[in-house]
Simulated scan of single mutants.
Amino acid sequence: MATQKELLRRRASRVRRALKAVSNGRPRLSIHRSSKHIYAQVIDDAEGKTLAAASTLDTSLRSDLKTGADTAAAAAVGKLVAERAKQAGVTDVVFDRGAFIYHGRVKSLADAAREGGLNF
C-alpha cells in the first residue's frame, strides 16, 4: 500500500505531466500550500529559472495579514505574484496546482492572480 506522501507525489506528477503537454512554452505558476503559509512561483521550465515569487512570508505582506493560512492571505499572495510576474514581462502562464485540490486557498490565489493580470 502506498503512503500518503507517495500518493500526493503521484498526483502532483500527473498534473505536471498534463501541464507540460499543453503549456506551449508558457511559464508555470506553481503553488505550495502548507498548514501555516502559501507560496507561489512563476517558473520558466525551459531555462530552469524562477521568474517571480511571492509568499505569506514576504515582509511586505506579513505585517498586513492576520495569518498566512486563510483565503485572504492567499488572495494577497496571488496579487503580489501577478504584479511581480508582470514586472518580469510575463502575462501568460499555466496554473500548476500540484497535488492540491482547486478549492479554498488555492482557488483564492488563482482568482487573485487573474485579477492581477495573469492569463491562464
Rank of each mutant, 00 (worst) to 15 (best):
A2V: 09
L109Q: 01
A21W: 00
L118N: 03
L57D: 11
S55Y: 02
D92Y: 01
I43W: 11
A12Q: 14
A21S: 12
A113V: 03
A54F: 09
D45A: 05
D44S: 13
L61G: 01
H103M: 04
S34T: 15
H103G: 04
L51Q: 05
D96L: 11
A18W: 00
K79I: 00
S60T: 12
I43H: 12
I31H: 04
K36E: 07
L8Q: 15
F100E: 13
H37W: 09
T50W: 07
A88E: 07
L109I: 02
A112H: 06
R16P: 12
R26W: 09
Q41G: 02
T71H: 01
G48N: 04
S55P: 01
G48M: 03
K79T: 14
K5V: 07
L61T: 02
R9I: 13
A72V: 12
R10F: 09
V42Q: 11
S30Y: 06
R33E: 10
I101C: 00
N24W: 06
S34D: 03
K36C: 01
D58V: 08
D44M: 11
D44A: 12
H32C: 10
I101M: 11
D45M: 07
A12W: 12
A72T: 09
I101E: 13
P27N: 03
V90Y: 05
A40F: 06
S23N: 14
H37T: 02
A54I: 05
R62Y: 08
T59R: 13
A110V: 15
R9L: 15
K79N: 11
L61K: 03
A52Q: 10
I101Y: 08
I38L: 15
T91N: 13
A52K: 10
R14M: 14
K79R: 15
A113M: 02
E83M: 11
T56Q: 04
L51N: 06
H103R: 07
